[in-house]
Amino acid sequence: MPSRIEPLTERLLLRQWRAGDYEPFARLNGDPVAMEYFPWLLDRDKSDALAEKLRGRIEEQGWGFWAVEVRGVAPFIGFVGLNRPNPPVPISPCVEIGWRLLPEYWGQGFATEAARAALRVGFEELHLDEIVSYTATINQRSQRVMQRIGMQYNGEQFDHPAVPEESPLREHVVYRLGRSTWETSQPAKEAST
């Protein structure tokens, strides 16, 4: 079994899922505001099944969509992390970065802070050449996070096969970030003497 990676930031811990995460995760997945850009809400059974799937992927490979806690403040605010889309999407094979947070934690920089930690894992520990992110074309909030973490949109789009054809959420934009671009954006490390 691979060693488990649990990124730590100034305010956040990205970690393996715990039983206590399932109730607030179900609240998140059933919240029409949080799920505005998803084609459907998830009931408790489907939400729990998704949490189990995410937990299982971290157990298998050591990384994934981690549960996020605000250290000393909130034990669970949502998830952020890296994922190989399964079933695949039209841009597969790829590793995506994604996030979903409870609305009461929006606007505090948590998604951006956690996403930067996930990028660090992807490029420095997993040695990925590229990380992608995608969302419904009309989801401007997520696109702003993608831009803040240095991802770039070059006009690439696809119709998401899991979204009904008639849905305004079917068309997705793709943002990409290559390792070399990410490396040049990082502050220079102090030389040790």
Rank of each mutant, 00 (worst) to 15 (best):
D21Y: 07
E23D: 14
P24R: 00
R27D: 13
R27M: 10
D31V: 08
P32D: 06
L41R: 11
D43W: 05
K46T: 14
K46S: 15
A49H: 11
A51L: 05
E52V: 01
K53S: 14
L54T: 01
L54N: 03
L54F: 12
I58P: 03
Q61N: 03
G64P: 00
A67K: 02
A67C: 03
V68A: 00
V68Y: 01
V70Y: 06
R71Y: 03
G72N: 05
G72M: 06
G72V: 05
A74I: 03
P75C: 11
I77T: 08
G78P: 08
G78W: 08
F79H: 15
F79W: 14
F79M: 12
V80N: 13
N83L: 12
P85I: 05
N86M: 08
N86P: 01
N86I: 00
P87M: 03
P88Y: 01
P88L: 02
P90S: 09
S92D: 15
V95L: 05
R100H: 09
R100A: 10
L101G: 05
P103S: 12
E104N: 13
Q108E: 09
T112I: 07
E113A: 07
A115N: 05
R116C: 14
G122A: 13
F123L: 10
E124L: 14
E124N: 13
